[in-house]
Design a protein around this nucleic acid. Structure first.
Lengths: 347, 347
DNA sequence: ATGCCGCGTGGGAGCGGTCCCACGGGTCCT
DNA sequence: AGGACCCGTGGGACCGCTCCCACGCGGCAT
């Protein structure tokens, strides 16, 4: 129990209100509101007077007050499952954020960052999000069995995903052309004369992993080569997983002369294992990764990798979400952005 | 009575209000408010009734409405200058964010992410922030000539910085023990029998760079060695800067047998240059970096590096900010957190 | 002139909370 | 018995904005 209430609530300088602007401009509140919201039904004279008053007072609308009546918050949440946050190579995360931020800033929207630590938090999140009345939700790294997106859809919260859960993703989402990227990687290996090309996949319950594997298959088939199951080893996007998978691959097929890894981190594990087995990269075995992350540039030898247009993906996510907020039922759309092969020394 | 019900404003399901809870619980609005805010002046009977009604309706308070009257937003902004966002090794950024998020979540505070692209945006930011009425501001990576913090202080916006601008930083801030970290790195090199130890610094207008350089000096002096100016080369935290600085260092002192680099990225550049000059790491020249970033683990050889307790730094920032919001004038405090030397193969 | 139209415009009525004042009804003291 | 006090309580008055209705006024047709 507090002995006495804090005196002087706090040192806040009371900011000017719309009322103050109206008084100074000699018009009614309605008119000021119209000017601020760009309504056309205001005379030039009033508009100028209001504008002058706004400038003079340094008036900035109070978001809470507006939000209370419009039932909008002009803010969206970016949900990042904690686990993924580590798993995914960092450029992925920060690149997308940068794009999202840029796309949102233009629309005067705020970005709420929500890191989700554990399952318990995750479960309560849907209610939380709809109660906070964010206008929309951006989700990073959804798993195929993720139900949060469905709940958000039920609650009619506009949602856009980074990546999709599976083939017929009903929600709006943005993803890189994983299949195409993988294809171009394998084609590059083929063009380099490699013939026994293995691949280390990601967890196959993730769409990205599936898509990249599919691209690998397509490239081989297009080249008239047979897809051999023992050249395909499942990894988990980690470095240790990459090492382990590479060892397995070498055991099965010691003559392998190239590897396409579904992530750079995996690839770096593979390179380590190759070196441990006395093989040289790329002379004996060529390696290509995916993501063009920091490690790609820094491992020895520098890694050829598939780059995703991260910032553009982020911007696109923002745009899609804004569209959906503007007119719900605009239909959830999926956007696929092209990838690019960055050739370095490993292949 | 209103003539007719509002014509379904939009597809939003109208969430229950405090009024609805009061009606269902058979009490007044004031009582419900008291229960929600944990006031002791409520009878157990009322409290129970209200609690039941809340659960039944799934009531969650409307932040905007509350914010309007309390003049608080229960949200803080995390400001990240865009340039730094690239410059700083990523674990730094994401580690701190994770800590901040954890620290804030406990207090029911929201985290607003604000990336600042260019100078123009930056200039308007102070006004913007105080107008948005965020309760406080967290700033990443301030430069020593940064004036935004000062403006925020003027505007009486509670602020906590990651790192400090200089020696007598007036604002609350959290930083790693950069000097101590550098010292332990150099001591490790000395313990390994190295005697001609060079250092590649960061931009010396940044406090971290200064502090790390100072630690280098102290360690040498403590060991009774002379600090030789030509063993100190200024870098810029980039890889290229590291290469260039290493080349310069080799030119000045070809017999150098160890290098302490002020960042891992710098160190990785140095390693590249050392190898290009035909030297082996660590056999001929030992190298230690700072940050324990991803690249530290992935370059060849794996880099010995100084780790900062990033997540704890984030949590501490959150706590400091919360304190300052709670009672302004609690005095801006600086907190220094210990670092840890992670020994790998490069030294 | 008289009516009608449409454009700007002012301002009342909320949005959903918190704050605080006034009030009923017990307890305890005189 | 009457007064002073305390406790839990209801509800009015906002917080700063948008929405919308009603109104004044000039121009045009009647």
């Amino acid at each position: 129990m507090r002995p006495a209430d804090p005196p002087a609530r706090n040192a806040d300088v009371r900011r000017p209100t719309l009322n103050a602007v109206a008084a100074l401009a000699g018009v009614g509140r309605g008119t000021v509101s119209r000017v601020i919201n760009g309504s056309p039904k205001v005379s030039d004279r009033s508009r100028a007077a209001v504008q002058r008053a706004i400038d003079e007072l340094g008036y900035i609308p109070n978001r809470a007050a507006r939000s209370l009546v419009t039932q909008r918050t002009d803010s969206v949440a970016l949900v990042v499952p904690e686990a993924q946050n580590r798993l995914f190579s960092e450029p992925y995360f920060s690149g997308i954020i940068r794009g999202v931020s840029a796309g949102l800033a233009g629309a005067g929207m705020q970005l709420l960052l929500v890191l989700v630590r554990d399952e318990k938090e995750y479960a309560r999140l849907a209610t939380y999000l709809s109660a906070q009345r964010v206008d929309g939700v951006l989700m990073m790294a959804v798993h195929s069995d993720d139900t949060l997106p469905d709940r958000l859809e039920e609650l009619a919260v506009p949602t856009v995903l980074a990546g999709r859960r599976g083939d017929g993703e009903p929600l709006g989402h943005v993803r890189a052309d994983n299949g195409g990227g993988a294809r171009s990687a394998v084609e590059h290996l083929l063009a380099g004369g490699r013939r026994t090309i293995g691949t280390i996949t990601g967890p196959l319950d993730m769409d990205v992993a599936q898509a990249r594997l599919e691209g690998y298959r397509e490239a081989l088939e297009k080249a008239g080569l047979e897809v051999q199951d023992d050249l395909i080893v499942q990894g988990d996007f980690t470095e240790d997983g990459g090492r382990w998978a590479m060892r397995e691959l070498l055991r099965r097929r010691p003559e392998v002369d190239a590897v396409f890894a579904a992530s750079d981190v995996t690839a770096s594990g593979a390179v380590l294992e190759l070196r441990a087995s006395g093989r040289r990269v790329p002379d004996d075995v060529a390696v290509i990764g995916f993501d063009d992350s920091i490690v790609a540039r820094h491992i020895d030898p520098p890694l050829t990798s598939v780059r995703q247009p991260l910032e553009e993906m982020g911007r696109t996510m923002a745009r899609l979400l804004l569209d959906e907020i503007e007119q719900r039922g605009a239909g959830h759309r999926g956007v696929v952005l092209p990838t690019e092969l960055v050739v370095r020394e490993s292949a």
